[in-house]
């Protein structure tokens, strides 16, 4: 999908709103978001807590659908897709990294990285090869047989990144990937993401509330109160 026509952006939100709950308890998390992200961008989504960053990221990641407005991914209207179709979309084109790492406990790093390949129906030998490659890329080749419990937070997040990139997705979505890490570990993670963005042309959309981390990105989108308040491209990356 990355080879779509140059005029078609990879990601395009138009007037997207999201309302949680109904009636008096209704909570408007997004109030009309317009956003366009092209292939190869590294976007940091910033903003105060409760401003709708995660909500927006979940919609972009096809984990959720907008209440109103349109979301096109590679020109395809996601709002019209079924739950299973969105799962297929995630499986083939998207990767996720979460604040809480979200690895399967009691399962080795290698098996965690293999998981998305399993759902793609890739055979054992090929799964092993690709997963080892991904673990090597995040610098954890020697930790393949360790379970998450035996790894540090930084290492766990790197396993999660390996799991996200092992399928060579078009976009990597990361929701506060450094939220649980100290600054040295956070820096390592950001360097890793930057490298994947530069070397593999991986599109990254990352939520963070730390300006230090956002500085690694080529573009920064600021959310306030469910709306995009600012959208700036760093001169260095441009």
């Amino acid at each position: 999908m990355s080879d779509t026509h140059a005029n078609t952006p990879l990601i395009e939100l138009q007037g997207v709103t999201k309302v949680y709950g109904r009636g008096a308890a209704a909570m408007q998390a997004l109030r009309g978001v317009d956003l366009r992200i092209d292939a190869g961008e590294f976007v940091a989504v910033m903003g105060p807590s409760g401003s709708g960053k995660s909500t927006c990221l979940n919609i972009l990641g096809c984990l959720d659908t907008p209440t109103a407005g349109t979301y096109r991914f590679g020109g395809v209207e996601v709002g019209g897709l079924s739950r299973n179709q969105r799962a297929e979309l995630r499986r083939h084109y998207l990767g996720f990294v979460f604040q809480g790492f979200n690895l399967l406990n009691r399962t080795t790093a290698l098996e965690n990285v293999e998981l998305p390949l399993l759902y793609r129906g890739i055979h054992l030998a090929e799964r092993h090869r690709l997963a080892r490659e991904a673990l090597t890329a995040v610098g954890l080749a020697e930790w393949a047989t360790h379970t998450p419990g035996e790894l540090s937070g930084g290492q766990q997040q790197r396993v999660a990144i390996a799991r996200a990139i092992v399928t060579a997705p078009d976009v990597l979505f990361a929701d506060e990937p450094t939220g649980n890490l100290d600054s040295a570990r956070s820096r390592e993670i950001m360097e890793l993401l930057t490298r994947f963005n530069r070397e593999r042309g991986l599109t990254i959309v990352m939520v963070t509330h730390e300006a230090d981390m956002a500085a690694f990105a080529s573009r920064s989108v600021r959310f306030v109160d469910g709306r995009v308040a600012a959208d700036t491209r760093s001169t260095e990356a441009a």
């Binding site: 299973n84 799962a87 499986r91 083939h92 996720f96 979200n102 998981l115 793609r120």
Partner: peptide, 9 residues
Amino acid sequence: IRLAIGALE
């Protein structure tokens, strides 16, 4: 995790 990664129902 499985669902997010793309497991079908």
